[in-house]
Amino acid sequence: MTFVLSLVVGTLFAGAAYLMLRRSVVKLILGMALLSHGTNLLLFLMGDGVVKGMPPFVDEATGVTPTAAADPLNQALILTAIVINFGFTAFILALAYRANQAVGSDDLDDMVETDRL
């Protein structure tokens, strides 16, 4: 299943890349959302691969987590990444909104003044 999920990750990145190359700010943001999903899913595949049905909880009996359980460190990293990217998403949403207000359009080609020579 890791293989299938790798392909899914690939499609997420492809979709994200395509959207981020568009002229609309909203599409850009949607692309960034897809990008973070792709990243999270990619991270998810690291470690020992994906494991069905064995979340990393400590087994009451033995006092340790079974070795076959999913990789906890991986998940912790992704969690941190999700929250951080959420912060960024919120910021970029506010920024895009304000930019749209200031420029009056959704088109990124209208936002080229700072580079104009």
């Binding site: 990750v9 690939g10 990619l42 595949l45």
Partner: peptide
């Protein structure tokens, strides 16, 4: 996308 998929699969 293909490159990323490749790397992801390889690394995992």
């Amino acid at each position: 996308g293909m490159v990323i998929a490749g790397v992801a699969f390889a690394a995992s």
